[in-house]
Amino acid sequence: MSNDVAVLGVGMHPWGKWGKNFVTYGVHAARAALADADIPWTDVDLIVGGETVRNGYGGYVAGATFAQALGWNGARVATSYAACATGAQALDTARARILAGLCDVALVVGSDTTPKGFLAPNAGERWDDPDWLRFRLLGMTNPAYFALYARRRMDLYGATQADFAQVKVKNAKHGLANPNARYRKEVSVADVLGSAVVSDPLHLLDICATSDGAAAVVLTSVDYARKHGIAAPVRVKAVSTVTPTFPNTVMDMPNLSTDSSAVAGVPERTFKESIAHAAYEEAGIGPEDVSLAEVYDLSTALELDWIEDLALCKRGEAEALLRAGDTTIGGRIPVNPSGGLACFGEAVPAQALAQVCEVTWQLRGQATGRQVEGARVGITANQGLFGHGSSVLLSV
């Protein structure tokens, strides 16, 4: 039995700092996706919203908020939250109802209005909230732990600050032709290394911004697509939202006298590797089949980690791929042809859906100015909080 569902429409509101309510952005993206699908609003029988906790009560009930803003049509509503994996979890909710035969057409919307500066937890003391604890007690903002990941790559694999900068250079070039990107300007390695140090070894241009933005996807059953004359739509082949396996620490630092593979209880895969593996396993597709990847580049160093987590190369080889130009459009496995979060910034409930939009355009051959020629399979990856993570695998 096939678990495929069809992607008939995708749409976005451009990323930026627009100063408007998140609903405005979400409605714009939803209408664009419906127009792309050529499906009337009245055919939609499920709306799933990506929750936006910063944006008041309307954000907590995002599915109903978007349904009301688009005009009540009797559809069912649902709301999902999984931090940066929110969009993929919302997509999976819609996919599940379609595969169960409970609906034919689902609209999935994620939208955000972000504050200036680093994302921080809500005010007030919350001693059972790991985010509050790391921010308030340890001063461990997101860039600080991005820097720990980066330093780890340097220690393990010999990565350099110039390698990290080259990721930004690549993604900035990719984003030049993307009309939805916030930053559309080329940068050099010298520009990155000359920008302010935020958390050593990462500079300001190594770290993504926070943005307003939205993305939407129209999913349908394959039968619905066929009945409407679309015989070969882009298909969602898998959505992975697996949690870590206990214990979730792998002893992989250098110069250890203990062979980590021999330590009882150490999992076969890290959390992020498990997310990708589950997607490949469900889809029956391997990393060797992937044409492009859209990954979670909150920092430049994290992109290099994700290339390996998705098994697009072996551990410690991501820098070699980058240096050889293999992760650039025209290379063996283009990574973030959209420009990634480097060019968009974080709009948390929207970014996993934005990745699906980009992969869909790529697989249709519609990514003007940044097209990966002959793209047949695309994979996405996001890491959320507290065991939330996601990977979506699409193909034609």
Rank of each mutant, 00 (worst) to 15 (best):
residue 137 L to P: 02
residue 63 G to Y: 09
residue 38 D to R: 13
residue 278 A to Y: 04
residue 279 A to F: 04
residue 317 E to Q: 15
residue 176 L to D: 06
residue 197 V to W: 08
residue 304 L to C: 07
residue 178 N to H: 05
residue 109 V to P: 06
residue 98 I to F: 01
residue 313 C to I: 09
residue 147 A to D: 09
residue 197 V to S: 13
residue 125 E to H: 08
residue 259 D to H: 15
residue 108 V to T: 08
residue 173 K to V: 02
residue 300 T to C: 02
residue 44 V to G: 15
residue 249 T to Q: 00
residue 117 G to H: 04
residue 15 W to G: 05
residue 50 G to E: 00
residue 375 A to E: 14
residue 372 V to F: 01
residue 35 A to C: 06
residue 72 W to K: 04
residue 297 D to F: 00
residue 68 Q to N: 10
residue 52 T to Q: 10
residue 97 R to P: 08
residue 61 V to L: 08
residue 152 R to A: 08
residue 145 Y to T: 03
residue 329 I to T: 13
residue 2 S to W: 02
residue 366 Q to S: 11
residue 83 A to M: 02
residue 37 A to I: 06
residue 260 S to I: 07
residue 128 D to I: 03
residue 271 F to L: 11
residue 292 L to H: 01
residue 25 Y to V: 03
residue 274 S to I: 00
residue 280 Y to M: 06
residue 364 R to Q: 00
residue 319 E to G: 00
residue 187 V to D: 05
residue 76 R to C: 14
residue 309 D to F: 02
residue 272 K to E: 14
residue 336 N to Y: 14
residue 331 G to R: 09
residue 142 N to A: 11
residue 167 V to L: 05
residue 197 V to I: 14
residue 115 P to L: 03
residue 67 A to K: 13
residue 313 C to W: 04
residue 314 K to E: 14
residue 25 Y to R: 14
residue 314 K to Y: 02
residue 199 S to G: 02
residue 263 V to K: 06
residue 210 T to V: 05
